[in-house]
Simulated assay, not measured.
Amino acid sequence: MQNVFNGLQEFLGTGGNILFYIMILTFFMWTFILERFAYYLFAHKPLKARLKAEWDARTDKTSWRAHAIKDELISQVKERTDTNVGIIKTLVALAPLMGLLGTVTGMIEVFDVMALSGSSNARLMAGGVFKATIPTMAGMMAALSGLYFSTVLPRWSARETARFADDLDVSPETVVY
């Protein structure tokens, strides 16, 4: 465990302070992604069952009020399935920008070395260039790790909302065997 901590600390030191912020951003992004998985695994089916039972308990399913209640039940499912999806998409989009910020800060260090030394010695600039590329790579990797989920989760939300709406439309009286 000590080796992991030392390795992480060394990696964060090579890329500058911005790597710490990229690490925090990635942690929150994956926390929200895992929260969505936990919702679909544990909370989604009970919510659908409860709302479906609420709809099935109604005697009036054809009036304007019944349709408004049905729309409200569908909206509850949509709201719950869409929770945190926008945040995930934002964090995925923000990760490469944070990497670019690290690139800029690393290049500023290169220019500081050039200004202090009065020359463009490649050996003196190498440390700053290295410090500039590490955050870019980390930001891109963070974004790529969440990109799949930022596109899949909205589709899951739309599919589950549509399925629930379809479940409310089917009643035992209208099913033909």
Rank of each mutant, 00 (worst) to 15 (best):
M1R: 09
N3P: 04
F5R: 07
G7S: 04
E10D: 11
F11R: 00
F11D: 04
L12D: 01
G15C: 08
I18H: 06
L19V: 00
L19R: 02
L25D: 03
T26I: 04
I33W: 04
L34S: 09
A38P: 05
Y39P: 03
H44C: 14
H44N: 14
K45F: 14
A49G: 11
K52A: 08
A53V: 08
A57E: 12
A57Y: 06
R58T: 11
D60K: 12
T62K: 14
S63D: 11
A68W: 10
D71S: 10
E72L: 15
E72Q: 15
S75C: 09
E79T: 13
N84T: 12
I88E: 02
I88A: 00
A95I: 01
G99P: 02
L101D: 07
T103E: 02
T105R: 06
G106P: 03
G106M: 06
D112F: 07
D112Y: 07
L116N: 13
S117H: 08
G118Y: 05
R123E: 13
M125Q: 07
V129N: 06
P135S: 06
A138E: 00
G139A: 06
M140V: 00
S145Q: 02
L147K: 03
L147A: 02
F149I: 02
T151W: 05
S157Y: 04
S157G: 10
A158I: 11
F164I: 00
A165D: 03
D166I: 09
L168C: 07
V170L: 12
V170R: 12
E173Y: 10
V176K: 15
Y177W: 14
